[in-house]
Write a protein that binds this DNA or RNA. Structure first.
Length: 525
RNA sequence: CGGGAUGUAGCUCAGCCUGGCUAGAGCACUAGUUUUGGGAACUAGGGGCCGGAGGUUCAAAUCCUCUCAUCCCGACCA
C-alpha cells in the first residue's frame, strides 16, 4: 500500500503532486524522462485506473480502468467470435493431479501455484484456523489447459467433432514474487482460447490466425504497433511445441510481451486423452492450441500513449470519448448552460465512432473548472468540450483534444459539432498510432553487429540514475542456447524471431559464428 | 528464500538519537466567506490503540526483547 521509497523519489525530483491539487507545469510528477517507472505508477493513480489491494500482489481495478478493460473485451470478443470461437466457462479450481499430467507444464507453473488444502475454518482460541483437509488439494488455475483438456477429452469422439474452438474470459492466479499494477499481478484477468484440431496443419493455421487477430486488435483498437514473431525455444510456454507472440515497445524502449499464441502439438492431448476416431477409423490424438491476452494490455496502453500530463486514451478504448465541462461563472447561468450541454450531448450521441454511438459525459460536479479539466486530462479522455455563457451567445463551444497540447483550443460552431467530433476522434486514433509507430521505428536498431556495441547500446550514461536508453536491436543469431548467458549479463533477452526475416546471412551478434536467423533483442518487462 | 530498509491521521511524512507539556505538519475531507473562461484564497472544524505483544521506568511514539506486516535489491513471469 504505502510505497514510501518510491514516493520519496517523486518528492525529491520536484513537485510531488500526488493527489490532485498540484501546481506543477505537468499533470504528472515526475515526468517520464526523470523517472519512468514512478511516472507509470503516478499515471495509474492520477487517472484512477487501479490501486494496490490489501491482498499482497493483487490489484483493485477502479471504474475508469475497468471501463478500458471492458472496451478491450468487447472489441476482442467480437473478433474471437467472428473467427468461429464460442465462449464457455471452466472452474477456477483444478485438481492437483491434473497439473502433473504434462511434464513441462508442471515445472513451468508449480512454483507459482496457489494451493487450496482445506475447505473449512474453525474457531480455535479465538482464531480461525483451517480445518477439513481435502483428500486431494486443488490449485487455483494459473492457466486452464489441463481442466479444459479434461472436458475436450469427453466432448471429442470423432473427427466430425473437430475443430473444437473455445474461448474463456476468466481470472487466473500466478503467485508472482514481484508485482506491478497491470503488468504483473498475482491475480489477473484475461481471455484464454483453447482449440483442438484433426491435423497439425489446421492447428498451426489456428495458431497463426489468432496471433494475427491479436496484432490487428492491438494496432487498430489499442493503437499500439507490435512486432509479431516466434519465441526462441527457451522462452516457450511450458508444454508448447511452438510459441508465437506480439511484442510492443514501450516509451522507455523496453519490450512488453502483449499476447501469445501457442501450438501445443499433441502434448496436452496425450496428457488429457483428447483422442478422436479419424476418417480412416484410426484413433488419433488431437492437435491443440492456446492463446491469450490479459489486463497487462492496459499497462501497455499507458506506456505506449501516456505523456507527462497523464494517460492518453485511443478513442476506441475510452469509456467516455467526450467530456463536456459546463462553465458556470455565476448561479444564474447554471440552468441555461446545463440545458445547452444536455442538448449538445444529445446531438453528439447521434454521431458514431466506428460502429458505436459516441460516448459523451457531462461533468456536472460542483468543482472548479480548472480542476475538473485537469482530472480529465490525466484520465486521458480524447475530447474535452467547454460550454459557458459566452459560448452560448456565439453558438459555439471550446474544444480541446488530448493528442494536442492542453492549451490548444478549437472553437467549433454548435451546428457542426457532431460531425467535427466524429472526425476528430478518428484523427486522434490514427495520430496516437502514428506517434507510437514513429517512436518504435526510431528505436529499432539494425546496425549493431557485435557484443561490444550491443553492450554499449544498452548501457546508460548515468549509472546512478539511468536515463531512458537502448531500444530493440535487430540482429543475427546463431541459435545456440549457450550463447544466451551473454544476454543475461546485460539483462537482455531475445524477444522474438520476427516473421519478416530479411533472409540475409551474416555473423551471430553473440558468438560471431554464422547466423541462422534474425532476432529482436531488448530489455523486457 | 538471501541482502537492505520501514511501520505515527485517508495519503505523504516530521517527532525517536538525548523518555516528560493536550502527539504535529502538508495534502485530502466538512462548513462558512470571498472568488470563478485553465490545477483558488482565507477562517473554522472533524479525524490517531504512534503495527502488535511483552519488558525497563514515577513516566514510553521515543529505550530493550520478541513478533507481525509492508517496501526496495536479486532468482520466476501474460
Amino acid at each position: 500500500m504505502s510505497q514510501k521509497g518510491t514516493n520519496q523519489k517523486a518528492v525529491e525530483s520536484g513537485k510531488g503532486n500526488t493527489s490532485g491539487g498540484g501546481t506543477g507545469a505537468t499533470g504528472i510528477t515526475p515526468i517520464r524522462s526523470v523517472d519512468y517507472a514512478e511516472w507509470y505508477q503516478q499515471v495509474i493513480k492520477a487517472a484512477e485506473l487501479a490501486e494496490n489491494s490489501v491482498v499482497r500482489g493483487c490489484m483493485v481495478v477502479r471504474p475508469w480502468g475497468y471501463g478500458i478493460w471492458e472496451r478491450m473485451q468487447r472489441e476482442l470478443d467480437d473478433r474471437i467470435k467472428a473467427t468461429g470461437h464460442e465462449n464457455a466457462y471452466f472452474p477456477l479450481f483444478i485438481p492437483l493431479s491434473f497439473l502433473q499430467k504434462e511434464a513441462e507444464h508442471v515445472t513451468g507453473f508449480a512454483k507459482e501455484c496457489a494451493v487450496v488444502t482445506h475447505h473449512r475454518l474453525e474457531l480455535k482460541d479465538g482464531k480461525l484456523v483451517p480445518a477439513g483437509e481435502l483428500e486431494e488439494p486443488v490449485i487455483v488455475r494459473p492457466t486452464s489447459e489441463t481442466i479444459i483438456g479434461e472436458s475436450f477429452s469427453r466432448w471429442i469422439k470423432s473427427y466430425r467433432d473437430l475443430p473444437m474452438l473455445i474461448n474463456q474470459w476468466a481470472n487466473v492466479v500466478r503467485w508472482e514474487m514481484r508485482t506491478r499494477l497491470f503488468l504483473r499481478t498475482s491475480e489477473f484477468l484475461w481471455q484464454e482460447g483453447h482449440t483442438a484440431h484433426a491435423s497439425e496443419k489446421e492447428a498451426m493455421e489456428e495458431t497463426y490466425k489468432m496471433l494475427e487477430v491479436y496484432r490487428e486488435f492491438m494496432e487498430t483498437v489499442l493503437a499500439m504497433p507490435v512486432f509479431v514473431g516466434e519465441k526462441p525455444a527457451h522462452e516457450r510456454f511450458p508444454g508448447a511445441v511452438r510459441t508465437f507472440c506480439c511484442e510492443a515497445m514501450m516509451q522507455d524502449r523496453k519490450a512488453l510481451q502483449a499476447g501469445t499464441s501457442h501450438y501445443l502439438g499433441t502434448n496436452f492431448a496425450k496428457a488429457s486423452g483428447i483422442e478422436f476416431v479419424a476418417e480412416d477409423s484410426s484413433i488419433q490424438s488431437a492437435f491443440t492450441t492456446s492463446w491469450g491476452v490479459s489486463t497487462r494490455l492496459v499497462g501497455g496502453v499507458i506506456m505506449t500513449h501516456g505523456d507527462d500530463d497523464g494517460l492518453r486514451l485511443p478513442p476506441s478504448l475510452a469509456p467516455k470519448q467526450v467530456v463536456i465541462l459546463p462553465v458556470i461563472p455565476n448561479p444564474d447561468a447554471q440552468e441555461s448552460v446545463l440545458r445547452v450541454c444536455e442538448e449538445l450531448a444529445h446531438q453528439i450521441r447521434k454521431a458514431k465512432f466506428g460502429e458505436n454511438a459516441i460516448q459523451v459525459h457531462i461533468d456536472k460536479r460542483d468543482k472548479r473548472g480548472g480542476e475538473k479539466n485537469w482530472e480529465w486530462i490525466k484520465r486521458g479522455v480524447p475530447i474535452r468540450i467547454e460550454v459557458g455563457p459566452r459560448d452560448i451567445d456565439k453558438q459555439q463551444v471550446c474544444l480541446s483534444r488530448r493528442d494536442k497540447g492542453h492549451k490548444e483550443k478549437l472553437f467549433i460552431a454548435n451546428s457542426e459539432l457532431p460531425t467535427k467530433v466524429a472526425e476528430i476522434l478518428v484523427e486522434i486514433q490514427s495520430n496516437l498510432f502514428a506517434q507510437a509507430k514513429a517512436h518504435q521505428d526510431q528505436h529499432v536498431i539494425e546496425s549493431i553487429s557485435n557484443y561490444e556495441e550491443l553492450k554499449k547500446f544498452f548501457t546508460p550514461k548515468n549509472a546512478e540514475k539511468p536515463e531512458i536508453h537502448g531500444g530493440f536491436v535487430r540482429a543475427k543469431w546463431c541459435g545456440d542456447p549457450q550463447s544466451l548467458s551473454l544476454l543475461d549479463e546485460l539483462k537482455l533477452s531475445v524477444r522474438c524471431i520476427p516473421f519478416d526475416q530479411t533472409g540475409t546471412v551474416g555473423k551471430c551478434i553473440l558468438t560471431g559464428k554464422s547466423a541462422t536467423q534474425e532476432v529482436l533483442i531488448a530489455k523486457s518487462y
